[in-house]
Design a protein around this nucleic acid. Sequence first.
DNA 1: AAACAACTCAACCGCCCACAA
DNA 2: GTTGTGGGCGGTTGAGTTGTT
Length: 242
Amino acid sequence: MVRQPYLKKGTWSRDEDHKLIAYIVRYGIWNWNEMPKHAGLQRSGKSSRLRWMNYLRPNIRRGNFTREEEETIFGLQKILGNRWSAIAARLPQRTDNDIKNYWNTRLKKRVISENKNSTAATTSTKETNSSMVENSSDADSSSMLTNILLDSPVSTIDDLLEPPAYSCFSPSGSDLVAVDDKYSMGTDNFLVSCWETQSYLEQPQMIEGLDWEAVLPNSELWHSHHQQCYDPLDDFWINPLI
DNA sequence: AAACAACTCAACCGCCCACAA
DNA sequence: GTTGTGGGCGGTTGAGTTGTT
């Protein structure tokens, strides 16, 4: 019987966070189950993935949801239900876990109280024969949602479920390359490393000395931040390739 | 100051789906 | 068509924090 290696659970330490960040910046994301071992972490792939996706990856905004974000969540939840990843895809910089937590701890109460109000209003409405009365906050959120939909090139719920794919251009400028395939993106989508994979179960090899550059379409920013990335723990810019 | 309640949110669990062998 | 595996998702838990009595 093969003994399973000890896997730590619970809160991530600062040291573990640093190990995971350093590893992903250098080698990218290739196999969540294999990566923790190579990164020197006694964590499961799932735990590592969750930590990265919900906390460590660049461009994540935490806490303090704006009124607009709140209305967006409120409106999209009415349409999509509890499909948090689909809702998160329409809220840049927010994770599905964050949105889910926000919904469960705050917005859910609002829905319950509004349902109570609406039940009371319906009863009252029937009595006064005025079926066109609409809950005012419902009207607010639905107009807010209309604005969101108008801002986005979507026409159906299916469109809402298909977020626009991130992409960047290869050094030659001709090939479109998917992020997390072969390139590692830092904050603001700056390319920070480039590697090649021999096998799905082997750690990727960094491509050293390759004359590569990458920019997002219509962006000049990368050139001024060449090979830099942001360390969310220490809140400063680092150069991971030195 | 202490005890308790309520709240927040990071993290886990189990299920499902896609894909490769 | 079947099986195994990895990744993604939503529901839930529980430790830590904040508020109240």
